[in-house]
Design a protein around this nucleic acid. Structure first.
Lengths: 203, 203
DNA sequence: GTCTATAACTCGATAGAC
DNA sequence: GTCTATCGAGTTATAGAC
């Protein structure tokens, strides 16, 4: 081990700190409600330093959604690895809901992509496209889980799996918004139970 | 009839026109994404004229939500009058969903209050309070419809009616957001069917 | 990588003429 | 009721020193 710990900058990784605070701000105030001034002030730098890491606000927004998408991709992959058996689909769905719950407890805000969706017609096209991709990512994963679970006989629902997945994911996003609006985590947990329980065979 | 038709102004009711366009803009771009400049330009007046009708932006926001709430109150009352029998709860729910669908077709945007919820921490307190009240209004009505329908034996679901109402309303809001994000009305209609159908006894 | 300084613009809001 | 004109503050973004 010749090359050691941190060649890093004085305050460990400003870029990551910027992303963390920016995500928090956007989830609480919206994209247009977050300014470089607020952002820079929160981590103790000047706005010019923010522009060094993210030349334009659109670049920041795009990086924000990209990181958020990746985090969810990792989450889904982890769940797939932990529950490879199609018959475990009910558990998988419940763990997925748990992750949303944990995310809400951590940030206290609604889904980043739901916030951005509300403002999408003022966003750079690249950001809007990534928001849609985030929805499609999650819907595709839910489609697979729902379809395999029904085939394995552990899930029950009407209609094609992709339609069910779209409806379920939208419902979960709505539950996050409801919990955020009333600062009430039980609105999220109650909704996820209400949505997922009826899908499970012999619960 | 001594006092006749219209003492009105040149362009019929600027105030109403302002509210109409402002709602459209907020639903598409968010509260912080709508400016007095855009708004005034759209109806062919100057920003000072907007301030004449709504002294501050907060006043405009409050008037917007108030009108939106009233429209929904009227809708719910109309549905109650058309379907007074508790056993008609399934039809009532489906008509309610139809109204959301019609609203989406008209504006093409998501629910005004969902947009405002996403930005709520930057809004005047009065507006935030009215957004919460909008949620509670609708949840209370759904609670009554769900509860009476289950008593009458035409609806079936688990748990207390108010919890079901909160979950269902949040899910409908999420479906509106999903439809808006993909400019796809079928996402809304499919989701409402998927949510409401399983509640109906012998459909 | 972070800073100071500033450009260029938009924002909500007000005063006062008509 | 709508206008012109303007204010002060906030916005994203850039140039150049350190």
């Amino acid at each position: 081990m010749l090359i050691p710990v941190t060649p890093a900058s004085p305050q460990a990784d400003t870029r990551t700190a910027l992303l963390d605070v920016a995500q928090e701000l956007v989830q609480a105030r919206g994209y247009n409600g977050m300014s470089f001034r607020d952002l820079a002030g929160r981590i103790g730098v000047r706005t010019a330093s923010v522009h060094y890491h993210f030349p334009t606000k659109g670049d920041l927004g795009a990086a924000l959604v990209a990181r958020y998408r990746e985090a969810f991709t990792t989450l889904r992959a982890t769940l797939d690895a932990a529950h490879p058996d199609p018959a475990d689909a009910p558990t998988k769905l419940l763990r997925y809901a748990d992750a949303l719950h944990a995310s809400f407890r951590k940030t206290g805000g609604m889904c980043l992509c739901a916030v951005l969706a509300a403002e999408s017609s003022t966003l750079p096209g690249e950001v809007t496209a990534q928001v849609r991709a985030f929805f499609l990512d999650n819907e595709a994963w839910l489609t697979a889980a729902l379809g395999r679970g029904r085939e394995a006989g552990t899930l029950r629902f009407d209609g094609p799996p992709d339609a069910a997945a779209r409806s379920l994911f939208a419902a979960l996003e709505g539950a996050l918004m409801s919990a955020w609006t009333f600062s009430d985590a039980t609105r999220l947990s109650a909704a996820t139970q209400w949505l997922i329980r009826p899908l499970i065979v012999r619960p």
